[in-house]
Simulated scan of single mutants.
Amino acid sequence: MCWKSVVAACGLLLAGLSVASAQDGYLEWTDANGLVGPFAEPEADLDTDGITNLMAYAFDLAPVNDPDAWEKLPSLAFIGDPPEPVMTFVLPREIPRDVCYVVDLVTEDGKRIEIARKNGRGPWKGTGEVFRRKLEDGCTEISVEAPLDIPIPEGECPLRLRVEFLP
C-alpha cells in the first residue's frame, strides 16, 4: 500500500472523532483523536491543509478535515488610514494550559519582534494592543494591533502568529 493511501485511510478514520478537551493536554488530545506514532507529532499535518496538529490543538480543531478551521485561524486585515495591520483569530472556550500564543511583528529586515504573548490561560502581555470579544459559542475573538511607535514594514504579512509548547 502506498504512503498516500495510508494517510488517506487514517484521515477517513480520524475525520469523525471528536476533539478532546483542551484542559487534558496535548498527549490526551492526540489519543482522543486516534493519532499515534508520527501522526501524533505536533508538526504533523495528516490532511495536508497547512494546519499542524499543534495548531489544531491550540485552536480546538479536529486534526483532519475540520470545516470550521479557517474561521478560527489567524487572518490579517489592514484597517484605517493609513492602513494598519490587525491580526484576528478565535481562541477556544477552554484555552490549553500547555501552549502559548505569540504574535510577532516582522520588520523590514526580516527580524521578528514579539508584540503580544499569552501563556496558557494567563493574561496577554506585550506592547501590542490586544482586543477581546466574547462570541456566542463561548469562544473569544482576539484582535492584535502593532504598537504605534514601531514602524510597520511594507509587505503582505507584517504580523504573524506562532503557537508554542510551554516549557
Rank of each mutant, 00 (worst) to 15 (best):
P82T: 03
E114R: 15
D60Y: 13
C100L: 09
L46S: 15
C100V: 06
D45P: 07
V130D: 13
Y26N: 09
R97I: 05
W29K: 11
V99R: 03
D68H: 10
V99A: 06
P96T: 02
C100R: 15
G122D: 05
N65S: 13
A58D: 01
D60L: 04
I95K: 10
T30F: 02
T30G: 13
L135V: 06
G126T: 07
P92E: 05
L27W: 02
N119R: 14
A116I: 03
V130L: 10
R132A: 14
V36G: 13
N119G: 08
A62W: 04
A44D: 15
Y101E: 04
E71V: 04
Y101V: 05
T127N: 13
Y57T: 04
G50Y: 06
R112H: 05
G50A: 08
F131M: 12
W29H: 09
Y26W: 08
D68E: 10
A32R: 13
L135F: 04
D47Q: 04
L46V: 14
R132L: 11
D47C: 04
D109N: 14
N53C: 05
E114I: 08
V64R: 01
R112V: 00
K118P: 11
I79C: 03
L73K: 09
E94A: 08
R97N: 14
A77Q: 13
V36C: 14
A58E: 05
T48P: 00
I95V: 14
E136K: 15
M87H: 10
L35E: 15
P38L: 06
F39N: 08
G110E: 02
A44W: 00
K72P: 01
P82F: 06
N119P: 05
D68V: 04
R121Q: 14
G122M: 04
V130S: 11
G80F: 14
E71T: 07
R112E: 04
E108L: 07
L105Y: 07
K118I: 01
L46T: 15
T88H: 01
E84V: 09
K111E: 05
V36D: 12
D81C: 01
K125R: 15
P85Y: 02
P38A: 13
K118T: 06
G37H: 00
G110P: 13
E41R: 06
P42W: 00
W29R: 11
N65G: 13
F131Y: 10
E114P: 11
K118C: 14
T127W: 03
S75P: 07
D66W: 03
F89P: 10
V103E: 03
G25A: 10
D49W: 06
N65E: 08
P96W: 01
G80P: 09
E84K: 15
A32V: 06
V90C: 09
L54H: 01
W29M: 12
Y57W: 02
E84R: 15
D104I: 00
R93T: 10
N53R: 00
